[in-house]
Simulated scan of single mutants.
Amino acid sequence: MPARRPSFIPRLTASVLLAAAGAVAALTTAARALQAHGRRRWDAARAEPDAGYSTEATIIIALLVALAITVVGIISAKVIAKAHSISFL
């Protein structure tokens, strides 16, 4: 005799199970397509050795700009502090 299902667990109909199976199949297909697309993009990027140079240069330039802004902020704060400490009397 099979075990009795608790009353709070609803009985799943065949249409619900088929819909769930269809959703899983659709997600699996989408995941495989996304993986294939990523693999094609990866292969294309590896085909040209200079393909990522502009991205790398952009990141380095952005870091240098951030560093320059920080340095200007520090120097200006020190100059302003020194200007406030000057006494004319």
Rank of each mutant, 00 (worst) to 15 (best):
I61G: 04
A26V: 14
A66Q: 11
L63V: 12
A33R: 07
W42Y: 11
S85T: 01
D43N: 11
G52L: 10
G22M: 06
V71P: 01
R39G: 07
A23F: 05
A20V: 02
V16S: 08
S54Q: 11
T70S: 15
G73E: 00
R4M: 09
R39Q: 14
S7A: 12
V71R: 03
A30Y: 05
I59D: 14
M1G: 15
A21S: 14
I61V: 13
T70I: 12
R39V: 07
S85M: 04
A57D: 06
F8Y: 09
A83C: 06
A68R: 07
I69F: 07
T70M: 05
V65I: 14
I69A: 13
T55M: 04
T13D: 03
R32N: 13
A81G: 09
T29N: 13
A19C: 06
V72I: 15
E48G: 00
E48R: 07
A83M: 07
A26Q: 08
A20R: 12
R40E: 09
P10R: 06
A47G: 05
L64W: 12
A57C: 10
I9W: 04
G52Q: 12
L67M: 15
A51F: 09
L17S: 06
I80T: 04
A26E: 10
A66H: 02
A47Q: 07
L27S: 06
A83Q: 03
P6T: 00
G38W: 02
A33D: 12
A33K: 11
D50M: 03
I61W: 08
L63M: 10
